[in-house]
Design a protein around this nucleic acid. Structure first.
Length: 423
RNA sequence: GGAGAGAUGGCAGAGUGGUCGAAUGCGGCGGUCUUGAAAACCGUUGUACCCGCGAGGGUACCGGGGGUUCGAAUCCCUCUCUCUCCGCCA
């Protein structure tokens, strides 16, 4: 959510920048400005009436002490009308505030200056690309390999739960565990603190990171207890810092967490959902950083380098793209995707998304730091990235490492799996 | 799940209807003293919003929401959470 003050201080700039995300904000901004003027006027009136009532109440107390009951009773009568006025003003004030809030949440985050123009994925900017020459020419897609070596059972998952909930078996299960441990260990080496958060969150947390109110349909909801299954560790981990004021010297806060992720993925179909490409439940190691606004873009680059180092160590062919305005998420100011190439599917698979949200989440979270110089509480910047999501990494490993003898396990994983071939 | 107790500022902890945004202690910050540090002493120390160029003024907030009252941290209702005991349980 864009902070109200920021928005009103630079209306024209906001409207211009949101055009990069193909969002026309002019009507909403105009409406918000109107409502805000009304809000200020209403609060001023309400405060004045309150002050008046407080004054009278003090006098009544004083008169009672003096035993001047008649005078006190006389004053009491005056308060009836004032109280009614206050109640009415308070009611309009809260109505106005709700209206402003409802409009503010409609505005996507402002894209960073460097975000390229564009409609969709085809307009993303390729930042750098690894070597894909070494990728074997042809081979089986991972869903065939999974069956051949009996390591991932999609049918069985269908029976137990439904599509998109695979069962990992034998070396397939061990490979999951190995990847999780490897990713966590690498994150810890890079200075991230490991946490295991809850896998269900309440409504406040969903709102804090921006899943609620309008991406409700993407999350599984437990009605009896009013809880949501997390779609990513970003939600519980970032919410560690909800309603928090940090010391400036405590920035950055760098966290990593492994969690399963649950996504309803309503509306997906076709080749996108084949095999491991898009699941309802999958595993991911996430990195989350709370950073000083002056350093958040530097931090974003470091996080990208960290995620990139993982695909390098796994020796997977990859590229990094900077998302264009049309392909970016609602809450992000700048996003890099890391994609690995699968020759068997002949396509790029997104395995990581690293974003800077600037103050967009922090504003909702009320996550601030105390500025040493001004002594003011200012909004932090929040960032997060996958490091990494497992399913497509597994898909790429299976597809790109297939040999006549079986699937070759990447060297860095062997200490974790204790086997070097899946056959 | 049943019974009881509780929730106050960064922390501890007083406050049971009026001058309480809240005693006191600790912590933090600034200063005096000191070669330096500690101790001691003095001062200062919550958040948000509104008005104002500013100085400054106003309003709200004592777990959340609602109520009683001229006036609520204090009384009532309700929700949430914590603790103790009992039950159940990996």
């Amino acid at each position: 959510m864009i902070p109200l003050k920021y928005l009103l201080d630079r209306k024209q700039d906001v409207i211009e920048r949101l055009k990069v995300k193909h969002f026309d904000a002019s009507e909403i901004v105009r409406h918000i400005e109107e409502l805000n003027n009304l809000r200020r006027k209403t609060q001023a009136e309400s405060d004045a009436k309150q002050a008046e009532l407080n004054q009278i109440s003090k006098e009544i107390g004083y008169l009672f002490k003096q035993g001047n009951k008649p005078k006190a009773d006389e004053l009491k009568h005056q308060t009836t009308a004032i109280k009614q006025q206050i109640q009415d003003l308070q009611q309009s004030l809260s109505d106005i505030e709700v209206k402003i809030e409802n409009l503010l949440v409609l505005l996507p985050n402002l894209p960073h200056q460097s975000v390229p123009e564009g409609k969709g994925a085809e307009d993303n900017l390729i930042v750098r690309q690894g070597d894909i020459a070494a990728v074997p020419n042809k081979g089986l897609p991972h869903w065939d390999l999974a069956k051949k070596y009996d390591i991932i059972d999609f049918e069985l998952g269908n029976k137990i739960t439904g599509s998109g909930f695979p069962v990992y078996k034998g070396k397939g299960a061990k490979l999951q565990r190995a990847l999780i441990s490897f990713f966590l260990d690498e994150a810890i080496k890079a200075g991230f603190k490991e946490v295991i958060p809850p896998f269900l969150v309440n409504e406040e947390s969903g709102f804090g990171t921006g899943q609620l109110p309008d991406k409700e349909g993407q999350m599984y909801f437990v009605q009896n207890d009013n809880l949501y299954l997390i779609p990513t560790a970003e939600v519980p981990v970032t919410n560690i810092f909800r309603d928090t004021i940090l010391d400036e010297k405590d920035l950055p806060q760098k966290y990593t967490a492994y969690t399963p992720c649950f996504r309803r993925e309503a509306g997906s179909y076709g080749k996108d959902v084949r095999g491991l490409n898009r699941l309802h439940q999958f595993d991911k190691v996430e990195i989350v950083v709370i950073e000083h606004p002056n350093r958040s873009y530097e931090q974003l680059e470091q996080m990208l380098v960290h995620a990139e180092s993982l695909v390098q160590k796994l020796q997977l062919p990859y590229r990094i793209v900077k998302l264009c305005g049309g392909d970016m998420s609602f809450a992000s100011a700048l996003t890099y995707d890391i994609e690995v190439f699968s020759m068997a599917q002949n396509r790029w698979l997104e395995v990581s998304s690293v974003s800077n949200f600037e103050t967009f989440q922090a504003n909702r979270l009320k996550l601030r730091y105390r500025d040493t110089e001004s002594k003011k509480n200012l909004l932090c910047h929040t960032l997060n990235g996958s490091a990494l999501a497992l399913p497509r990494i597994v898909a790429a490993i299976l597809e790109n490492n297939q040999t006549d003898r079986g699937i070759k396990v990447p060297d860095v994983l062997v200490p974790y799996t204790n086997f070097d071939i899946i056959n």
